[in-house]
């Protein structure tokens, strides 16, 4: 798609409502959803549609992109995830990052990390944000690894912020600043 944010292995494009069946599968795979805010309860197709309708309409506070793999064999589904900036604050120049790689076979392949790097580039060098933060559930080691690789550092934790599988877990807060991103970019 023209104008997409392209990297080497993924491009960020608009959200596609026609992918509703695919996205509904992601949202009903507990291996995927345990790490998301929505959690492991099943999600109906109607709820998924609501989400996609909202996601494909950028607002002043929220931008959602699809993550599309560029290196998969012809014919294989390339629409592999979503990545977003939420709660964009125009005065403070901040936003919160959210990401999902929805298909099991594409986890731990570096797609998420590259998508985050592309989005950070857009956030700092296009949108002129000063700070991007995120939170992840304490047990989400896959997420932690990707965020560290993309340059985020841990800033604190929201103790016992979330309830999953019978107990409360901390949410870890991470952040990256524009100056950190640009310094890393130069070196």
């Amino acid at each position: 798609m023209a104008g997409a944010l392209r990297g080497e292995r993924v491009s960020l494009e608009t959200v596609d409502i026609d992918k509703i069946d695919l996205v509904n599968q992601w949202f009903n795979d507990p291996l995927i959803t345990k790490n998301l805010n929505v959690g492991v309860l099943p999600m109906s197709k109607d709820k998924t549609r609501d989400f996609l309708v909202r996601a494909q309409t950028p607002t002043a506070t929220d931008r959602v992109f699809s993550i599309n793999a560029l290196d998969l064999p012809e014919g294989e589904e390339a629409y592999i995830g979503h990545i977003a900036l939420h709660r964009i604050r125009s005065i403070d120049r901040t936003a919160e990052l959210g990401i999902v790689i929805g298909m099991r076979q594409h986890l731990n392949k570096g797609y998420g990390t590259e998508a985050i790097k592309i989005l950070l580039d857009f956030a700092f060098r296009e949108m002129n944000l000063n700070r991007v933060s995120l939170t992840y559930k304490d047990f989400n080691l896959r997420g932690q690894k990707a965020y560290q690789k993309a340059g985020f550092q841990e800033e604190g934790r929201l103790r016992e912020q979330v309830y999953n599988n019978g107990r409360y877990w901390d949410m870890v807060i991470m952040g990256i600043l524009k100056k950190e991103y640009l310094a890393e970019k130069i070196t």
Partner: peptide
Amino acid sequence: MLKGELVQLKAPDRS
């Protein structure tokens, strides 16, 4: 988590 040996729980669908 929502699958057993005989059944699975899903979100109800309009259909």
